[in-house]
Computed example of a mutant assay.
Amino acid sequence: MTSVYDFSANSLAGQPVALRDFAGKVLLVVNTASKCGFTPQYQGLEALYQQYRDRGLAVLGFPCNQFGAQEPGTAEEIGAFCQKNYGVSFPMFEKIDVNGATAHPLYRWLKSSAKGVLGSEAIKWNFTKFLIDRHGQVVERFAPTTKPEDLKAKVEALL
């Protein structure tokens, strides 16, 4: 696989989505969870999306239950939580694994394209972020502690 556009994933509604549908956009791909200390970042992610979507930014949320079982809900529960509590309007996908033998192929590629701290590939926690340019290439990986609002300059540089 050579770009993010080589992958597909199911939407939160269970429909297949080819990531090539986002070709030409800057992407921020995030593994999310509803019961995490970083969950309030949904607000910042939505604000970033609202501010830049007309210029070509898409935020893609991938719920994951691999860290402290902090995303236990069904797709319906996840969608309702995100909408009710944070007004999330950016695309959300079905719950996936980001580490291990059952990791989604997209995340296998993301992790190999942008290593984490000390060269580690493993995702360490919820709300790890990958910034992808308009050509479908990973530009940078950000730790869960990096707030969405701190990514504005990097997003703007790619738009």
Rank of each mutant, 00 (worst) to 15 (best):
M1T: 12
T2P: 02
T2I: 01
D6Y: 03
D6M: 04
D6G: 06
F7E: 00
S8G: 04
S8D: 08
A13H: 15
G14W: 06
P16T: 04
R20V: 04
A23G: 01
A23L: 00
G24P: 10
G24D: 11
L27C: 13
L28A: 00
V30R: 12
V30K: 07
V30Q: 14
N31S: 12
S34I: 08
S34N: 02
P40M: 09
P40F: 10
P40R: 08
Y42K: 15
L45H: 06
E46H: 11
L48Q: 10
L48F: 07
Q50H: 14
D54L: 08
L57G: 09
A58Q: 15
A58R: 15
A58M: 07
V59H: 06
G61T: 14
F62N: 08
F62P: 11
F62E: 09
N65I: 12
F67A: 12
Q70V: 07
P72Y: 13
A75G: 10
A75W: 03
I78T: 15
I78A: 06
C82S: 12
Q83L: 09
Q83D: 11
Q83G: 02
N85M: 15
V88P: 14
F90D: 12
E94D: 07
E94M: 00
D97W: 03
D97N: 03
V98W: 03
N99W: 06
A101P: 12
A101N: 12
T102N: 06
H104G: 06
Y107A: 06
R108T: 08
L110T: 01
L110P: 05
K111P: 06
K111R: 05
S112W: 07
S113F: 12
S113I: 04
K115R: 15
G116R: 06
G119A: 07
I123K: 14
K124G: 05
K124D: 00
N126Y: 11
F127C: 06
R134A: 08
G136R: 02
G136I: 05
G136Y: 05
Q137W: 03
V138Y: 03
V138R: 11
E140N: 11
R141C: 00
R141M: 11
A143I: 13
P144S: 09
T145M: 01
P148Q: 02
E149R: 07
D150C: 09
L151I: 13
V155G: 05
E156F: 13
L158P: 01
